[in-house]
Amino acid sequence: MKRKVVVPLILLVVFTSFILFFIPMKEAFTFTEQRTEDPEMYYIPLKSDRGFQIRYVHSIHLTDVFENYEVTVDHKIKLLSMQYENLAIGLPGSAEEEGESFSFKDGVYTLTYDDKVIDSFVLFIGDVDAELAFRYLGNEINLKQQLERGKSYAFRVTKLSYYQMLKGGNLNGNKETAAR
């Protein structure tokens, strides 16, 4: 009698564990290699704070540019603002589209977006020595040290299964420097 109950119970536990291992459950920022047949995926677990920042050094002026974002409830990326000290190639000198505003205060230009939401974007990890960093929860991860230079990565927010997390690389485990 006991065997009739124990065997199905064990099978149920094994089956449920197996299914839960492959069901996407954990929200994460993901960086997935582009233009390759066997893409590598790297991730940073998403916690309760939905805001993050990308900091890079402008290749001409060699000054910091800060792009501020927020994750929406449906895993999209909302652009909030862009801040920089010098106007240059690739950096806007005015608000050019509806829903944008542009200001200059205390030596910092700020382009603010009212409601600009995207699914993903592609980051190219260039070979130039200028910095490129992902900032989240007070940590700064140097993407040029963690990802391969010369490659493009699709950046998006998605839910990952435990299997995908085991297979991918956790960038959060390689914290570079504390955010300033």
Rank of each mutant, 00 (worst) to 15 (best):
F21Q: 08
K167E: 10
S48L: 12
R156T: 14
F102Q: 03
D129Q: 11
A88S: 12
K105P: 00
N174L: 05
T30E: 03
K2R: 11
K167C: 01
L111H: 01
S101T: 11
L143P: 08
E67A: 03
F18C: 15
K175Y: 00
I23R: 04
T72L: 06
K159W: 06
V57C: 04
E33V: 08
V71T: 09
F134E: 03
F66E: 12
V5C: 11
G93I: 03
I141F: 15
Y162T: 07
K2E: 13
K4F: 15
M41K: 15
D49L: 11
F66T: 12
S120L: 01
E40W: 06
A178F: 03
K116V: 10
A133F: 04
K26H: 14
E148W: 05
V7F: 08
M165K: 09
M1N: 14
A133P: 00
D74T: 08
L9G: 14
N139K: 15
G169C: 02
V108S: 00
V5N: 07
E100V: 02
L137R: 13
D127S: 10
F134Q: 01
P45T: 03
I60Y: 03
G150P: 11
K159F: 11
D127Y: 09
F22I: 15
I118V: 09
G169L: 02
L87V: 13
L143G: 04
K159I: 06
I89H: 06
Y69L: 07
Q53G: 08
L171N: 02
A179D: 01
F15S: 15
K78T: 07
F124Q: 10
G99D: 01
T110D: 01
Y43N: 02
P8R: 08
G51E: 14
V7I: 14
I10F: 09
S161C: 10
A95T: 00
N86M: 14
F15V: 15
I19M: 14
F22R: 12
I89N: 02
L46K: 12
L80K: 05
R50N: 12
E40P: 02
A154W: 07
M165E: 09
R50T: 13
P39D: 04
E97Q: 13
F31G: 03
L46G: 05
D64P: 13
R156H: 08
N68D: 11
G90Y: 04
N174K: 09
K116C: 01
S94N: 13
F155G: 04
Q164F: 02
S101Y: 00
G126S: 09
E97V: 01
I23V: 14
N139T: 13
D74L: 09
G107F: 00
E140L: 11
F66G: 04
R50D: 11
T16D: 07
D106V: 03
R55D: 13
V13M: 11
F29Q: 06
E67W: 00
A154T: 15
I60G: 00
E27F: 04
I54Q: 07
E140K: 06
H58T: 07
P8D: 05
S94R: 13
